[in-house]
């Protein structure tokens, strides 16, 4: 009888885990939602016209199609390479990335698409504009996520080591975990039950003056800002830290950093789209 009970418990637990894991991209959705709240009426109408969806809904489009036909050259667009002139390795240490891929990654593409849309979206087909907006939504999100900024790990100052490719090891409830996984699951770690409206209420707290300051410069400047945050995060969650047992002050610091990065990404995305569709 005990065995039956145990079996039932295990199945119940596995089902709830499956449900939680089936869902990806909540951080991107939050960023899209924050950005949507800061669009001008003109930009919002244009975005809805081209996307036929909100920015929040389309936030993971680039991930959903990542390895499909026609998207294979976009893998590096998900990453902000903090030092684009240095040598990087990819999934495997033996694999040296092409300098062109490193140089033309997230920050480069954001600036490129911003400029292309700003100067000539009216001459483009609807589907071209639609896809460029979708890319921008996701790339702005990725570039503000510390796990998507490739810089050397502090205690191993070699530019072949990056946090992007899961080489910065942490723990979660005693089990192996990575810095990248922590950021991919940050919404579940911090506030698993929150909806996008609650996240926005917590993160979107900047004054118009502060928002204007956040949006100064271009994607290259913004990438430098995120790079500093990555270095700061190494102090909050040093290697081998168990993320499930962070101290209150470390959890608070991680929470504040998460809010900040989501808000910055949302504001900057809105800034670009408002600039593109300013008429």
């Amino acid at each position: 009888m005990k065995k039956i009970l145990l079996f039932a418990l295990v199945v119940a637990a596995s089902l709830s885990v499956q449900s939680a894991k089936a869902w990806g991209g909540p951080g991107h959705t939050i960023i899209g939602y924050i950005a949507e709240q800061h669009l001008t009426p003109e930009a919002k109408a244009k975005c809805h016209h081209y996307l036929r969806h909100t920015l929040a809904y389309e936030a993971s489009w680039m991930d959903n199609w990542r390895y499909s036909k026609g998207f294979k050259g976009t893998a590096h667009w998900h990453i902000g390479y903090a030092y684009p002139n240095r040598q990087y390795t990819g999934d495997f240490r033996s694999q040296v990335l092409k300098p062109e891929s490193v140089r033309k990654s997230a920050a480069y593409r954001i600036n490129e698409f911003h400029e292309q849309l700003r100067t000539s979206f009216k001459e483009m087909s609807d589907s071209t504009v639609q896809n460029k907006i979708r890319f921008l939504i996701h790339m702005l999100g990725d570039m503000h996520c510390p796990a998507h900024v490739a810089i050397p790990i502090e205690d191993k100052p070699t530019y072949e080591e990056t946090t992007v490719y899961n080489r910065y090891r942490l723990k979660y409830k005693g089990k192996k975990y990575s810095y990248h996984s922590m950021w991919d699951n940050i919404t579940n770690i911090l506030h698993p039950k929150w909806k996008v409206t609650e996240w926005r209420a917590a993160a979107d707290s900047y004054t118009p003056k502060q928002r204007a300051k956040v949006c100064r410069g271009d994607a290259n400047d913004w990438l430098k800002g995120t790079t500093k945050e990555v270095v700061r995060s190494y102090k909050i969650v040093p290697r081998d830290t168990d993320v499930a047992t962070l101290s209150d002050s470390d959890k608070r610091a991680l929470t504040e950093m998460t809010y900040q990065q989501m808000a910055y990404a949302g504001y900057r995305l809105a800034y670009i789209l408002n600039d593109v569709f300013k008429e």
């Binding site: 089936a22 869902w23 909540p26 809805h48 036929r52 969806h53 929040a56 919404t187 996008v196 409206t197």
Partner: peptide, 23 residues
């Protein structure tokens, strides 16, 4: 029943409905 909706589970039902409607 679940997978596709879970992809948008962080949205409220009203926001999800709004998006379905927009399309």
């Amino acid at each position: 029943n679940s997978y596709y909706a879970y992809k948008h589970a962080i949205l409220t039902a009203e926001l999800y409905a709004e998006d379905i409607n927009l399309y």
